[in-house]
């Protein structure tokens, strides 16, 4: 028997108190049967290789912890991922255990995975700590290498909007009854995906401008033979 965490102590106590633990194979699960008008549990013990029938005074089932069925909707609203069991998935198991990739959203407790109350409390404290690193500041320093729109060129075609993973781009109406993209500088992470997608060249990434990268390409492909004569 292997128990979770330091719960081995309780297993030992249970054994001392005379509790019997019986294994079963996953493909050969215990069954409830009615025998002589009484409720009994029938199961095959793989160690004894025999069928056991256990009399019952009281039958208590361990209830499964299942994820909240609404998790998928919430995940979509907050732009945060779920794992394959439909629990919320943190940004990094070890390095960012209560954060999401989306800034300012944190996770704790049963939303994250089935866990004991003590663990849920510890995780909630961690999440509160992480949140306080943001709300304790008077202002948030944004990344420098974020995207910027050249409003004279932007047509507001909206190609960039669905590209942005952080929902940092909005298409807004200008005074002259035109549309243009607007960047929420606090949300932009500076990946540049919108810049690569912009068909008109209105979107630029600071520090990684088109002409800067083009200059790099030119330099990398420069014909150096003329100089090496």
């Amino acid at each position: 028997m292997r128990t979770y965490g330091f719960k081995e102590v309780y297993y030992e106590k249970a054994r001392e108190a005379g509790v019997m633990f019986i294994r079963y194979e996953e493909f050969d699960r215990p069954e409830l049967i009615r025998q002589d008008g009484e409720l009994k549990v029938s199961l095959r013990d793989p160690v004894l290789r025999d069928q056991l029938i256990i009399d019952t005074d009281l039958l208590i089932l361990s209830v499964a912890t299942v994820p909240e069925p609404n998790n998928a909707n919430l995940a979509q609203m907050l732009k945060v991922p779920l794992n394959s069991d439909k629990f919320f998935l943190e940004a990094h198991v070890k390095l960012r255990p209560v954060d999401f990739a989306t800034e300012g959203v944190f996770v704790a407790g049963l939303a994250h995975s089935p866990k004991f109350i003590a663990e849920a409390i510890a995780q909630a404290k961690a999440a509160a700590g992480r949140a306080s690193t943001i709300i304790s500041k008077k202002a948030i320093e944004a990344e420098g290498i974020i995207a910027a729109v050249n409003e004279d060129i932007c047509d507001g075609c909206g190609i960039c909007k669905p590209i942005c993973e952080y929902k940092a781009i909005e298409i807004v109406a200008t005074e002259e009854d035109k549309k243009k993209a607007e960047i929420n500088e606090a949300l932009c992470k500076g990946c540049g995906a919108c810049v690569g997608a912009c068909p008109s060249g209105a979107m630029e990434q600071k520090g990684f401008k088109d002409n800067q990268l083009m200059a790099l390409i030119d330099a990398a492909l420069e014909e150096t033979t003329a100089l090496s004569i």
Binding site: I145, I163, G190, C191, G192, A193, V195, G196, A197, Q205, F208, D210, L213, L216, I217, A220
Partner: peptide
């Protein structure tokens, strides 16, 4: 040539 994300490659 380093870019922040391969998605930046125009």
């Amino acid at each position: 040539i380093k870019v922040m994300c391969s998605g930046r490659v125009d």
